[in-house]
Simulated scan of single mutants.
Amino acid sequence: MKVMKKSKQESKSRILNFTKQRRSEKSVPSSEVTRDLFSDIWRDHLDNVKAITGKIQNKKLIKTSQKRADIRIDEAKGPIRLSIFKQDE
């Protein structure tokens, strides 16, 4: 198995950049961010990116959703989508 090391800060920055690019009206699948970070071994790193996403969510910088409903990352089962908080939220 190939291993690619990415710092937590690099992962956090990438998550925030992806969500900012999409703005609050659109969301991005967490798998898209993970693929961008880890290319062909992205599936091995989904849990790591999910954990970092949870920390960012706790700081109220992003929100996570499933089936268009906001959800806490620790309650998510299956694919999630990420979006930046609107300034008025």
Rank of each mutant, 00 (worst) to 15 (best):
V33C: 03
I52M: 04
R68T: 14
D44T: 09
Q87M: 07
Q57N: 13
L46Q: 10
W42D: 10
F38V: 03
G78K: 04
H45E: 14
F18Y: 15
E25S: 08
I71T: 13
I15F: 05
W42S: 13
S65C: 08
I52F: 10
D74H: 13
Q66R: 12
R43D: 11
F18A: 11
F18W: 09
V33L: 03
I56H: 01
A76D: 10
I62Y: 07
D47F: 05
V33Y: 04
S31V: 06
N17S: 08
W42V: 06
V49K: 01
R23S: 10
I56C: 03
H45S: 07
N48V: 09
Q57R: 10
P29E: 05
R43H: 11
D74V: 10
Q21F: 06
R22C: 05
R81L: 09
S83W: 02
Q9C: 00
R43E: 15
T64H: 01
I62S: 08
N48L: 12
I80E: 06
L61C: 07
R72F: 14
E10A: 08
N17C: 02
S30D: 07
K12M: 11
T19E: 03
K26W: 05
F38L: 03
Q57T: 15
K20H: 06
I41E: 14
I80R: 08
S65T: 10
H45A: 04
D40G: 00
K67C: 12
K20I: 04
E75Q: 15
Q21M: 10
I71M: 15
L46H: 08
I15P: 02
S11R: 06
R72G: 00
